[in-house]
Design a protein around this nucleic acid. Structure first.
Length: 900
RNA sequence: GCGAAAGUGGCGGAACUGGUAGACGCGCUGGCCUUAGGAGCCAGUGGGGCAACCCGUAAGAGUUCGAGUCUCUUCUUUCGCACCA
């Protein structure tokens, strides 16, 4: 063993050893317990970022720990390789997305290897490989055949200048990111997956996901959004009937296409349908509101230029729900009416920009007295407010001008004709019963979840395997012709999908009739790619099918690790897709992920200067020097380049725009992979945000160097051999008080670290405990062979406990401590109960809940002896006084509280 | 706007099941040492008093013998909102 810790050499040696042994190549072994440990695969953006390092270190710590627990571990890795950034890079540099992506993959793979992750690279996959995406296509056609995939129109962001569909990310403040033109909504045909058919199952099964974070389950449940309520039909009044008849009588061609469609839809429906969870307030309805895309809005716009302009205005702006929800709530009356389904009173229909066509029926009933948004709308437009519910303890007769939350509370119906005087459940039952009798309503369940639109008008994605034939319609690509290969040499220019201009791709013979036909140019949402990759890893080399029986062995994933930002979409789509594959008979499981760990974001300081004119200039923290005063408080920061001050802008997630990213590569080159891994695990618990700190990294490097030096000094002080420590110390050996205390601490550390990793999934405290043990063992200076054995055992425990986090240095130190077997193949030991035993324990003594003393009592002491020990303390006696205590609370082994 | 979570020293964090607030590390202060290294070692470090003790976990209330932890209200920050991945 050499005296100096040189991470580069240590890490190369350890990695060479694992590679040469094929240590991390996983093989199915019937009857042996398996552990499938999966971290979310990266998008190959160019270089690893700190979030990746964090994510994959967590996964690797668990994988290595479970391996040492004796499990057959699979930890695979792949690439989420399709997506928008490759097209943006292509536009910026003129390099085809395929080349850019593959070069990034090669670079990032080397980075992952340098970090020493125990990955099974024989199962590597990239979603842009035809061998992978052919099965996307195959599965899509199977879903299409089963009716789970289907076609309908959907709304997209449209850039009228570039004549192209924009992703939400490409819409900045309602304008196209390249052209600056106001974005419009546009309806186009798309393919959808019927995830809503699984709403109930996806919701109910959340209860069984005990090892998922509570907050993720709550978010998914709210996203699926089950609400029980009533569908209510409002018959058309004479004015709508007249408009419909007039439209129907008009000569063909006299009405525009959109209006003709609207007429047909309205005639088909026959009534205005709304969904409500508060049918008990039906008699409080004073208006109805429809979305601007609702057919009734189109009908009312005919001959009403003001309304037509408003409807047109609503078409502008993005499709993002957050934008829709925060914009000013506006509306305009249509002049048309529907009839109250029970009273027959006419109700005016309004067009409102806050009604979403995609939720419910695209129309709502307006009850200003008992709904906050409706009240705001009614007050602004002078619509009547009719109070129809009064809570049992309400102090008001009629709702006031300003909204109060109790207006929405359940209560007793009033002003509701024969339905007055009923409490909520009875009112709902009576009113929905009456509606059902008239054929104007029924109770039903409404879901917030919408079907999943997977069509993307983009190049760098998996082609949707369909052919459009003038004679045969939409024809699936025959299985023998799969995969439909994406041409890899195109470079997008921002004006639409380049596939539409690629003759070689576009023109194809119809598989049915052989005549000239046109390929579908839309590609699939990249969430499709990531919805089943975890299944493919189990059978990555299977050429004849997407998955095979090996899925049975490896799945479900035992531990899934990824960013909290995926809490809803990716995880829900994966749960759905797995069920869809189950219903295709391809797999037997429904839930793909057993345990879920959602890691927090990586943050860093933001430094900037604000010029007198123009935009802020951001400086990377690596170029900034921070200054502290004598109390350790931060006083300011300067740019090392010019020595001038920079502003401190607080913390933010590492990003290009704030220039506060730190390249993991520089950290690995400077300090080694072990320091990088150790810092990421030590700086905060995995589920919380992590703040980058260069000083913190240095601290971890110093710790590793101290550990190396301590082991070196131990090793050179005398002969070492395996089994010198853990098993050689006789249970009743005379160790002396200090030796026994160190042994107890060592085994207590082992116990804590095991629990921290296996049960609590926190690593910062496991590392802290190991640091404490190193501090203790370096303080322990007893001479003699017995003391040497105690030290040796403590060192072994430190190296073992840290090994999942810092596998390279541990690999080396384990050999130095005399072992012949590699550490990765060692078994995780159990703490020695005998070493843990104690004769006395410290008892906290409180008087009136305030700490007054600590006393030593025998382990298992009863209350009387604990009280006696406490009263022997002068401070305790002083605070207790002469009067007998009013109450005494005794928690054995912990605390005694005397209440006076 | 809606949904979810989090606020503890100068900083990151610890306190797991309601029972010692501040483990471990960073930063800072003082000292020692030297082969002057992105070193190492020793001591100190929540605030007040510098003693006894008192006060302290975003703010305010409540439950309890006892609250950082449970309940309610408010404030702030972070994540998601269906075409970023």
């Amino acid at each position: 063993m050499q005296e100096r810790y040189e991470p580069a050499a240590v890490e190369r040696a350890a990695q060479d050893y694992w590679d040469s042994q094929g240590t991390f190549v996983a093989r199915e072994q019937a009857g042996r317990g398996k552990y499938y440990c999966l971290s979310m695969f990266p998008y190959p953006s160019g270089r690893l970022h700190m979030g990746h390092v964090r994510n994959y270190t967590i996964g690797d710590v668990l994988a290595r720990f479970m391996r040492m627990q004796g499990l057959n571990v699979l930890q695979p890795m792949g690439w989420d390789a399709f997506g928008l950034p490759a097209e943006n890079a292509a536009m910026a540099n003129g390099v085809p997305p395929a080349r850019w992506t593959r070069e990034n993959i090669a670079y990032m793979k080397r980075q992952l290897q340098a970090l020493g992750f125990g990955l099974d690279w024989t199962r590597e996959l990239a979603t842009c490989d035809p061998e992978y995406y052919r099965w996307n296509q195959w599965l899509f056609l199977a879903l299409l055949e089963r009716g789970i995939a289907y076609k309908k129109t959907g709304v997209v962001n449209w850039d009228p200048v570039d004549q192209t569909v924009l992703a939400n990310e490409q819409v900045i403040d309602g304008r196209g990111w390249r052209t600056g033109a106001p974005v419009e909504k546009r309806e186009i045909p798309m393919y959808y997956l019927r995830i809503t058919a699984y709403s109930e199952e996806l919701l109910d099964a959340l209860d069984g996901l005990h090892d998922w974070p509570e907050r993720v389950r709550t978010m998914q449940a709210n996203w699926i959004g089950r609400s029980e309520g009533c569908e209510v039909s409002f018959p058309y009044a004479d004015d709508i009937q007249a408009a419909l008849e007039q439209g129907a009588l008009a000569p063909p061609g006299a009405v525009a296409g959109g209006v003709a469609q609207a007429l047909a839809a309205l005639q088909r429906d026959g009534t205005l349908k709304v969904f409500t969870t508060r049918v008990d307030t039906l008699f409080g309805v004073t208006f109805a509101a429809v979305s601007a895309e609702h057919p009734l809005a189109a009908l009312a716009s005919v001959g009403n230029p003001q309304l037509a302009a408003f409807v047109e205005e609503c078409r502008r702006g993005s499709t993002m729900e957050a934008d829709v929800a925060t914009m000013e709530k506006r509306g305009l009356a249509t002049g048309l009416h529907v009839l109250h389904p029970l009273s027959g009173a006419p109700i005016e229909v309004w067009v409102a920009n806050y009604v979403l066509m995609s939720y419910g029926e695209g129309a709502v009933m307006g009850v200003p007295a008992h709904d906050e948004r409706d009240l705001e709308f009614a007050r602004r437009h002078g619509i009547a407010v009719r109070t129809v519910v009064r809570p049992a303890l309400a102090s008001w007769e009629q709702v006031g001008a300003a909204w109060l939350p109790e207006y929405a509370a359940h209560g007793i119906t009033i002003n509701s004709g024969e339905f007055s005087g009923l409490e909520f459940d009875a009112a709902v039952a009576a009113i929905s019963g009456a509606l059902e009798q008239r054929g104007l309503g029924r109770k039903r369940v409404q879901w917030r979840l919408r079907d999943w639109g997977i069509s993307r008008q983009r190049y760098w994605g998996c082609p949707i395997p369909l052919i459009h034939c003038a004679a045969c319609g939409e024809v699936p690509v025959p299985e023998a012709d799969l995969p439909v290969r994406l041409p890899e040499d195109l470079v997008p220019d921002g004006s639409g999908n380049p596939l539409e201009k690629c003759a070689a791709f576009l023109h194809v013979a119809c598989p049915r009739c052989g005549r000239a036909a046109r390929r579908e140019t839309d590609t699939m949402d990249t969430f499709v790619d990531s919805s089943w990759y975890f299944l493919r890893f189990a059978s990555a080399d299977q050429r004849a099918a997407p998955v095979d029986e090996r899925v049975q062995y490896w799945l479900p994933v035992d531990q899934y690790i990824g960013g909290i930002e995926h809490a809803i979409l990716h995880l829900l789509y994966s749960r759905f897709w797995t069920r869809a594959m189950r219903d295709l008979g391809l797999v037997k499981l429904a839930e793909p992920f057993g345990k879920l760990l959602t890691q927090g974001m990586v943050l860093n300081q933001i430094y900037y200067r604000q010029p007198a004119a123009g935009r802020r200039v951001y400086f990377n923290p690596a170029e900034v020097e921070v200054h502290f005063d004598a109390d350790g408080k931060r006083t300011g920061a300067i740019l090392t380049g010019d020595g001038q001050a920079v502003e401190i802008g607080g913390l933010g997630t590492m990003s290009k725009s704030k220039n506060n990213g730190v390249d993991p590569q520089s950290m690995v080159e400077k300090y080694g992979a072990d320091t990088a891994r150790l810092f990421m695990m030590f700086a905060s618990p995995p589920e919380q945000t992590l703040e980058w700190s260069e000083e913190g990294v240095q601290g971890q490097f110093r710790f590793l160097r101290r550990l190396w030096k301590a082991v070196y000094e131990h090793v050179v002080a005398g002969p070492v051999s395996a089994h010198q420590g853990l098993v050689s110390i006789a249970a009743d050996a005379a160790l002396g008080a200090a030796g026994a205390a160190l042994r107890r601490q060592a085994h207590h550390t082992l116990e804590r670290v095991t629990d921290d990793i296996a049960r609590r999934r926190v690593f910062n405290t496991a590392i802290a405990a190991s640091m404490e043990l190193l501090n203790a063992v370096t303080r322990y200076q007893e001479p003699g062979p017995m003391a040497r054995a105690v030290r040796h055992e403590a060192f072994e425990i430190i190296v073992l406990c840290l090994s999942p986090m810092v596998p390279h240095i541990s690999h080396e130190l384990w050999y130095a401590l005399g072992h012949e077997q590699a550490l990765i193949d060692a078994t995780w030991p159990r703490p020695d109960q005998h070493a843990l035993a104690q004769d006395t324990v410290e008892l906290i003594v409180q008087v009136n809940g305030k700490l007054r003393a600590r006393v030593q009592v025998a382990t298992g002491a009863d209350e009387a002896s604990a009280r006696a020990a406490a009263m022997a303390d002068a401070t305790v006696r002083r605070f207790v006084g002469d009067a007998p205590p009013r109450r005494v609370v005794y928690v054995p082994g912990k605390l005694l509280n005397i209440v006076v």
